[in-house]
Design a binder for these strands. Structure first.
Length: 216
DNA sequence: TCTAAGATGGGT
DNA sequence: CCCATCTTAGAA
């Protein structure tokens, strides 16, 4: 696919107030990087919303710090941070300046530049290429130095798919790895495309389902 | 300065 | 289940 096929979402998409809705809307969109002449892209299949004002799981909840400064900027930028000293996690900053919301991208279905992705990651299977927040960043060449990048620029952006493929079912669940957030750990702010292979962790099956029987 | 803990992922 | 790995934020 030619680079011109990946048309950037408008700034207004990111500047909306409802980060939970934006997290849902990002499913099916395409995350694209163009670095050192190499184009890579993947369809977004899993997201999580984080709200800086009423969500204890959000990095910007307790106070404003140098790391989270970019989350307070106007929507439409990348917030990338290092997790566990190893993984670079990519977020989309949303809302107006001063309101620190973001959407974590947790899973991608690889679409373009697969050879490049395999080169950046040390795996052989396509399924392991981009099915997690840390791995997808590695596959697309995203790292912490890109935090603050404008998604309206030429190295990283999000595109509307050309074949308007919104024919999928959305599953909702609690977010992963935020047990420390007390009652906010229970917020149903994780969204993913049903039965997609590139979702990082599937919903636990009920005992009935795992025996291959119909659930009630 | 010092240190605990983390929005993970890969292996056993 | 275990643990690599190192920044960040908060404490001292």
């Amino acid at each position: 696919m030619n680079i011109s096929a990946y048309e950037k979402l408008p700034l207004a998409f990111y500047k909306r107030d409802d980060v939970v809705q934006i997290a849902r809307d990002l499913l099916g969109k395409i995350l694209v990087t163009h670095l050192q002449g190499k184009l890579t892209a993947g369809r977004i299949v899993e997201t999580e919303a984080y709200n800086g004002r009423n969500d204890k799981a959000c990095h910007a909840y307790y106070k404003r710090t140098p790391r989270t400064e970019v989350m307070y900027e106007e929507g439409g930028r990348a917030y990338v941070y290092l997790c566990y000293g190893i993984h670079h996690l990519f977020n989309v900053v949303t809302n107006e300046e001063g309101l620190a919301d973001a959407v974590l991208i947790r899973g991608l279905e690889p679409l373009e530049g697969l050879d490049q992705m395999f080169g950046r990651r040390n795996v052989l299977s396509r399924k392991k290429l981009t099915s997690g927040p840390g791995t997808l960043s590695q596959a697309l060449g995203i790292n912490r130095s890109m935090s603050g990048e404008n998604l309206g620029g030429s190295s990283i952006w999000i595109a509307q798919p050309s074949d308007i493929n919104d024919n999928f079912e959305i599953e909702t669940d609690v977010r992963i790895g935020v047990d420390y957030a007390e009652e906010d750990a229970l917020l149903p702010w994780r969204f993913y495309i049903k039965e997609n292979d590139f979702v990082s962790r599937k919903k636990k099956k009920t005992p009935t389902e795992s025996r291959g029987l119909k659930s009630s």
